[in-house]
Each structure stands twice: as structure tokens, then as C-alpha cells.
Write a protein that binds this DNA or RNA. Structure first.
Lengths: 220, 220
DNA sequence: TTTAAAGTGTAACAGTTGTTACAGCTTCAA
DNA sequence: TTGAAGCTGTAACAACTGTTACACTTTAAA
């Protein structure tokens, strides 16, 4: 899930002139403090916002009031660029800063101009949105697994594919439960049972897959 | 959810020459019969496929083997265009024909050429993908609601927003259960209870909202 | 019209998850 | 070192959903 995006660092050169950007490109830069909500679910999205420095957290509020953790975004990356061109162009999630951040803002019309003038930028934009779609599809798949053990199995097998059979997560149990959209004690119970059956081993945030076959069986 | 996409009918003129398409554009057309699986989850996606006539059904097979109905697609519309540019460019879903169909296929390189040459096409492509993303976000939101009554409430309130408080669905109860990702008898039970409490009324596929306040309370 | 297939209403029961509560363990800062 | 706050393990119970089965109704084809 990391580094699937092309670099957006070239935007650091904006305004320097002679770097491929139209010299008359209109844009602005905004600064925000820590733990600030910079976009809310439903906010109008009429410009391309690129997170230049810092990190933010996007979270969707489900209609039953629960938080449903989606993603942590580190600079440099655009924020919800797909929605810039959608029919109902409003932010789908809340965006909260995790530290001090710097956001570059380019109006929609300028984005279109930039895209037609610069095919590389267009490709980058397309690829980024494609990867976002894939991310959402993946989340959808995870959520469509009904049992908690099934979610755990799906998630761990995915991690094992990228890394070895032993790996460290950057989430604690509470955050993992949120990620799965389940209650924390329920997740703990399922994990306990899987440890008891010698399918996995867990030490703090380090997870080991002991029996990949049994883990796959949990997906059935 | 209907008619959110721009028209793709202009592709009917392809090959006529003098209609804006490059005269040397490479493409091919394929025909398929009814109930044929034309793309499978995981298939490589190296061309833009546009459904020109007929209709197809996309369904995702969750890892526990259940079907999870996603969407019915009517011509003219592209099939999974976002994945053309994604890092792992593979189909996220199975695509099954509902009738005889005609599919226009344009290789990826040609799509890029077409897009830079024709800004209108680019905009159309961007908007389409943006709306797809919004669709997925909406599905994600629906799935993240835990209770069946909550899902029903969310869905009916959404319908009521677009239409009046009485409307007809194009799904039967079984398909609605698939759409929600729940068991059919469970859905029937929840509907029965909501009818019993005079929150809604149902006659075949016609649904009426009788008490919008109580319906909203189900989202809490 | 008849008949098979599809769709719907309902019930009993099993299985999984959520809720709540509490104790022990870590971590981090004063 | 010592709190205090956060994280984890666990248990009992409630709530909800899934499974299976069957009768009934509707639809569509012969």
C-alpha cells in the first residue's frame, strides 16, 4: 500500500519558472496547525489540494455515528483529487491534520489547463486516481468479509504477501479494530482463539503467520 | 445514481472519420452472447473496454465465497476504466453479460494519445472515473452501517432524496438482500418489523416512507 | 389455462458479534 | 520512582444475523 503513487514532489518547484509549469499558473498555499480539521465531509471541492508537508488523517463518519478509520496521508500527496471532477464535487471524508501542514491549492480550471499542457501531469493524475480506486475496492472487499477471523486472515495474508511471514504493523489493537470496523474486545477474542489454535503468534505489534493453510481456510 | 455519466455515444461514430477521432485510431470490436463471463476478477486490464450495446452485471466474489452484487451496467459505458492506469492493472470484479453485447476495445497507448489530442474526451474520462469513485465511497458507507435496518434506512432515505416519499425499486427482495450483503430472510424480517412499526409500507417493489423521523432514528 | 419456476413471509434455532465491566500491563512524563 | 493514561486480555450476557425449512403467492412460459 506504500509508494504506489508517483511523486508529487515536482510541485515543490512551482513558481520557479522554466520547470514545465505554465509561468502564469494560478495557485495559493495555506498553512494549518496540528489537530485541525481542514476539510469536512460535504465541503465543496472546487480546487486541487496537494499536501506539501506534514501528514493528515482522513476519517469517514458512518451514519450510525461510528468512526471508520480510512487512511493516514503523508506529504506529498493530493487530497481527494478524484472528487474535483465528480458530479457532486464534495469531500467524502473529514480531513484532520496530524501535525503542522502546508497545502497547495490550484483551482479546477487551472488544473484542466495544466493537464492539457503537460501530458506527464495528466498521466500522474490518472495513475493516482486509479490507485485510489483500487484502494477503495480493496477496502470494500475487506468490509464484505463477514467474519472477524476472515477479515484478520485476509489482512494478514495481504501483509505476508508484501513482506515475510513475520511483520510489524503500524497500528495497535484498537486502531486495527477500527480499521476492520469491529469492536475491540471482539477482535481481541478472535485473535486469542487464532493464537490458541497455533495459526498465528502475536507479540505487541509483531505478527507471525504460523499456519498459512489454516489461515486460508478461514476465508471460506 | 442514474445518468451521472456523460454520454459515451460519440464512440458510435468511431471510424467514420472527420468526427474528432484520429483517423488512424486503433481499436477492435468484440461480440458476446448472453450469460457469458467476459472478464474475470484478476484479468489483466491493458485496454479501454467500452460496452456499446447490451447490459452486463459486475459482481465481486468475496473471499468467503459469497457473491456481493455491485452494479448493473447498461450501454453505452466503459468497463472499469480506472484500472487501466492503476499500478496493479487487473479487473477488480467479474463481468457477466445479461444479454448479447458489443464491446469496443482501445489499447492503452491509443487511449493516452486520444486523451492528449482531445481534451473533451479527457474531461469525460476524468468525470466518469470521479463518479465511479463516488459510487464506491457510497457503497463503502452503506457497508459500514452495521445493522440491517440501518442499511435499509440509509438506502430508502437516499432514494427518497432523489424521488418522492413513494418510489419503485428495480430490484426484488432477493437482489436487495445481495445488494446489502445480508441474508434474504434476515432482510425480510427487518422489513416486516419496520412495516409493523408503521415506519414504511411495501407493496411488491413499491416502497413508501411513512415516518421519516423514525427512519432517521434507525441510523443512530 | 396450466404448470413450473421464481419470489416472498415466517419460524425455530445456531452462531457470531457487540456491550459492559474490570484487572493487569505498558509507556511516558513529572 | 511514581502516577496517570492508554493498551490489552477476559468474561458474562444481550442483541443481532445467518441457516434451514416450508408454505404460500406471483410470474412467465408452454
Amino acid at each position: 500500500m506504500k509508494n504506489i503513487d508517483p511523486e508529487w514532489n515536482n510541485f515543490r518547484n512551482i513558481g520557479d519558472g522554466g520547470d514545465g509549469f505554465p509561468s502564469d499558473l494560478q495557485y495559493s498555499i495555506k498553512f494549518h496547525g496540528k489537530n485541525e480539521v481542514i476539510f469536512r465531509q460535504g465541503d465543496l471541492c472546487d480546487a486541487l489540494n496537494i499536501l506539501m508537508t506534514g501528514s493528515v488523517k482522513t476519517e469517514m463518519i458512518t451514519e450510525n455515528g461510528n468512526l471508520m478509520g480510512i487512511e493516514i496521508i503523508n506529504a506529498p500527496r493530493p487530497l481527494a483529487p478524484a472528487f474535483l471532477f465528480s458530479g457532486n464535487n464534495r469531500f467524502p471524508v473529514d480531513v484532520t491534520t496530524l501535525e503542522e501542514v502546508e497545502v497547495l491549492r490550484i483551482p479546477k480550471d487551472e488544473v484542466i489547463r495544466l493537464m492539457t499542457a503537460q501530458p506527464d501531469f495528466m498521466q500522474q493524475f490518472l495513475t493516482h486516481n486509479a490507485n485510489r480506486t483500487q484502494f477503495l475496492t480493496n477496502r470494500l472487499q475487506l468490509l464484505s468479509i463477514k467474519t472477524i477471523k476472515g477479515k484478520i486472515a485476509h489482512f494478514l495474508l495481504e501483509q505476508a504477501g508484501e513482506q515475510g511471514d513475520t511483520f510489524t504493523l503500524n497500528r495497535n489493537q484498537t486502531e486495527l479494530a477500527d480499521f476492520f470496523g469491529v469492536a475491540r474486545p471482539s477482535l481481541a477474542r478472535s485473535l486469542s482463539e487464532m493464537i490458541e489454535e497455533n495459526i498465528i503468534a502475536v507479540n505487541k505489534r509483531e505478527y507471525s503467520i504460523l499456519d498459512k493453510r489454516k489461515l486460508r481456510d478461514l476465508l471460506l
